[in-house]
Design a protein around this nucleic acid. Structure first.
Length: 311
RNA sequence: CGCGGGAUGGAGCAGUAGCAGCUCGCCGGGCUCAUAAUCCGGAGGUCGGGGGUGCAAAUCCCCCUCCCGCAA
């Protein structure tokens, strides 16, 4: 193949945008497939996905199928794609769709496969406390995140990095990997290698019910949740009967006699006693209010220090 | 019209009609070898904007702007 390959891009959230842009650099984008406009924000107005917006700016045809049915497959086929690239599309693809492009589907997955297969790999990485992560390019097969590996690159995780920052870095890394590996794969210079399935781990879709913090848990686990669940489903507790979001905090090993959930003051910083260790609060948000620094929050709420959260 | 909370000195909050307050910060001074500690004093606010009712409005009524939680 000497010409630029024709590719169809599947993706939805902002994570997929840099990857779409990178694809435009190495291939001819026949079309972009993304999720239909979803009700979002206050007022529940329907909003196009970030990938949809970017694709329009780039002047690329956009398909927003509600179902991946025969009509969609017909349209997909009509673009005569050599391959498809998929990054966080948000739906499982039927085999009939996977079978359309001759070179298959290349998936940009933000974890070091076979670790963290599934729909929430970045959150799972942070929850597990992994010191490193990365991006893996695979060829999709009939099982979830199971196909052979085209390329993989690794990055370190910052000691207190939250998911949005890590996701942005992984998106850029994914764009790089795609730029470097896609054409070699298309030309057959790069043979995909099977994953070591024995080492596979799996993650589940995040649920809103995981958002409330349980202070009996160890502080380091709670810090991981705060970093992994940012910005959704978020982490919160309750204070004076109102929902209190914990936006940022750091675990420390110190122990205290107070029961879990008690707010103590440590060197000016409000700190919550946990099942093991303590959580130094850095940024909080009371329902309906703006995010505030934890120190300032304690100044305004004189009964905060000494309170037992989550009760 | 999806439901709901909010806007008060630099920051965070209290204050449902009767002189605009609290914690922190800031400025000046005391104490001190020194200090984020402590003591005394001080500056700083058209109470988001506009209209209305009242002898009197941060507070009650109407309109507007901006911010946020739930919900996805």
């Amino acid at each position: 193949m000497n010409r630029r390959p024709r590719a169809v891009f599947f993706g939805t959230p902002s994570f997929a945008v840099p990857i779409l842009e990178a694809l435009g650099g190495v291939a001819e984008i026949a079309a972009v497939v993304t999720q239909p406009d979803q009700p979002a924000g206050r007022g529940q107005n329907r909003q196009p996905s970030p990938v949809n917006r970017r694709a329009r700016e780039l002047g690329v045809p956009v398909l927003v199928p509600a179902k991946l049915d025969h009509e969609f497959i017909y349209q997909f086929n009509a673009g005569k794609p050599d391959l498809a690239v998929l990054a966080a599309y948000g739906k499982i693809l039927p085999l009939a769709v996977l079978a359309v492009p001759p070179k298959g589907f290349v998936n940009v997955h933000p974890s070091l496969l076979p670790r963290h297969r599934g729909p929430s790999p970045v959150a799972a990485t942070l929850l597990a406390g992994d010191p490193v992560t990365g991006v893996t390019l695979i060829v999709l097969d009939e099982e979830m995140d199971h196909g052979p590996i085209i390329a993989q690159q690794t990055i370190n995780i910052g000691p207190h990095e939250h998911r949005p920052a890590l996701e942005r870095r992984l998106a850029n890394l994914g764009a790089n990997v795609l730029r470097q590996a896609l054409l070699p794969y298309c030309h057959g210079w790069l043979q995909p290698q099977p994953q070591n399935h024995a080492l596979a781990t799996f993650c589940k879709l995040l649920k809103k019910t995981e958002a409330p913090l349980t202070w009996k848990e160890p502080a380091d686990m709670l810090e991981r949740k705060i970093r992994a669940f940012d910005p959704w489903p978020g982490t919160h507790t309750s204070f004076n009967g109102r929902r209190l979001k914990i936006l940022d905090a750091e675990a420390r090993a110190e122990s205290a006699a107070n029961p879990p959930g008690t707010v103590i003051i440590d060197d000016e910083t409000p700190t919550v006693v946990c099942g093991a260790g303590q959580l130094r609060l850095k940024s909080l948000q009371l329902a309906g209010q703006k995010p505030t620094a934890a120190v300032a929050f304690a100044h305004g709420h004189r009964d905060f220090v000494g309170a037992i959260l989550g009760s």
